[in-house]
Each structure stands twice: as structure tokens, then as C-alpha cells.
């Protein structure tokens, strides 16, 4: 039984399109019935891109991200991984060191089926090398009731869309005095009526403030825990 272990790690459940999903504090979504793990926007190779431009970005963020991903896959005993776009950051970031790291990660999860929904960054970086054995698809691919896209705008309305691209973050705190300066932006899951936006999986990616629409369900990640902000209605 792998599911209970997932649940203890600060995750929460959410019902979407008749399916039960778990939101994981590692910035991923797990679909237990199909043993499928969803992540968006890992942006591997971003630090390398910066460094080739002479900007000092520290090394270990991508190896830490890959290690996290491995642990998630193993804990959940996932059969399938879907990357909702922006696997690689840019062409200049596609270095041997990045591909090697991804390669040994792939070897560790040989039986895992990996699907990449091409995002805007993937289009300029190009599909990952063949030896990584990833199925690359264009946005709009179906998986059960879900339509897999990168940008929320790509959703056709045909199914419930799972997307990324926005790197959603929610500003919390921000009251007077020092409070204003202690306000923090936290990575967030946004579940709208027809479309969900996942937080960016990559650690070196940053957050963009989102303004949720009326009726959106929102969860943030703080201190290794997913915290529902307004699931009250259906919980």
C-alpha cells in the first residue's frame, strides 16, 4: 500500500472531474486510480542557461529537483509521469551535464511511462534526446477526463484541463508595520471550473502572482505542507 504514505507527507485530496487527486507539497499532483504523477514547468537546465550568460546561478537546484522527483515516483509507485510543459529551459541550457543527469534519472525509473506536453520553452529548446525515452505530445492530449495542456489558454473545453505555465503564487500576509515586509508569496495550485494550474515543479523558477477567479479552489504550499485556502464549500 503506497497511498497512505503519500497522504502522510502533508498532501491533501481534491475531487476534480469525478476523480480524486492528491496535491503534493513537492509541487506535484498524484492521480492514484491511474498511478499517474503530474508535474509542470521543471525548467531543467535553467541554471546552466544563466551560467553560460555569465550569471552565477548555483548548481545543485536541478539535481535536487530530480532527486525529489525520484522519491515521489518511488513512494507512490507511479506507473506514469506527465510533464505539463517546459521540461527544458532553453537550448543553451541543454548541456551534457543536464542530459546526463536526466539520463541517469531515467535509468532509475526504466519502467515509468513519461509523457511531455510540449510547452513554449520546449518548442525553443527542442524535444529531449531519444535516449530519455519520453513521449512528446502537443497540447490537447486526453488522459481519462483530463485534457493535458501547457498554457491554460490552450484548453479546448473538451475535458477538464490540467496546465502549468503560469508558475502561480499567492501573496499571504501583508498587514501593517513589519507585516508588510514579512508577506510571503507561496507556490499555489489553482483549480478553476474547467482548468487547473499546477505550481512550477522546478526550484529555480520563481512565482507569478495570480488573481483567482470567483469560485476557484486554491491551495498553497508552506513549510512542506499543502494548505487548502477555500475548499470549505465542498469539503
Amino acid at each position: 500500500m503506497t497511498l497512505p504514505r503519500m497522504e502522510t507527507a502533508g498532501s491533501i485530496g481534491i475531487a476534480v472531474a469525478g476523480e480524486d487527486l492528491r496535491l503534493l507539497p513537492e509541487r506535484a499532483v498524484y492521480w492514484p486510480r491511474e498511478r499517474t504523477l503530474f508535474i509542470a514547468d521543471p525548467h531543467f537546465g535553467k541554471a546552466q542557461t544563466f551560467r553560460s550568460a555569465g550569471i552565477a546561478a548555483p548548481e545543485r537546484s536541478h539535481s535536487a529537483d530530480l532527486e525529489t522527483l525520484s522519491l515521489l515516483i518511488e513512494h507512490a509507485n507511479a506507473a506514469s509521469l506527465v510533464v505539463l510543459g517546459d521540461l527544458l529551459h532553453s537550448r543553451s541550457g541543454v548541456r551534457d551535464s543536464v542530459i546526463d543527469a536526466l539520463g541517469s534519472w531515467r535509468t532509475r525509473h526504466r519502467s515509468l511511462a513519461v509523457t511531455l506536453v510540449r510547452g513554449n520553452h520546449d518548442r525553443s529548446a527542442g524535444d529531449p534526446p531519444k535516449q530519455l525515452n519520453m513521449k512528446c505530445v502537443s497540447p490537447g492530449e486526453r488522459r481519462g477526463p483530463f485534457e493535458l495542456v501547457h498554457e491554460p489558454d490552450e484548453a479546448s473545453g473538451n475535458g477538464y484541463a490540467l496546465s502549468g505555465h503560469l508558475h502561480p503564487g499567492v501573496q499571504l500576509g501583508g498587514s501593517g508595520g513589519l507585516g508588510r515586509k514579512t508577506a510571503a508569496k507561496l507556490p499555489a495550485f489553482v483549480f478553476g471550473a474547467n482548468c487547473a494550474v499546477l505550481p512550477a515543479f522546478g526550484r529555480f523558477t520563481g512565482l507569478a502572482g495570480v488573481r483567482p477567479a470567483e469560485g476557484d479552489r486554491l491551495a498553497v504550499i508552506a513549510d512542506g505542507e499543502v494548505i487548502a485556502l477555500n475548499f470549505g464549500r465542498d469539503a
Binding site: I55, A57, H89, S92, H121
Partner: peptide, 8 residues
Amino acid sequence: HLQASSEL
């Protein structure tokens, strides 16, 4: 491709 915030 080189956008990153200082906070990041």
C-alpha cells in the same frame, strides 16, 4: 530565458 527574480 534569463529572467529570474532576486528573491529566487
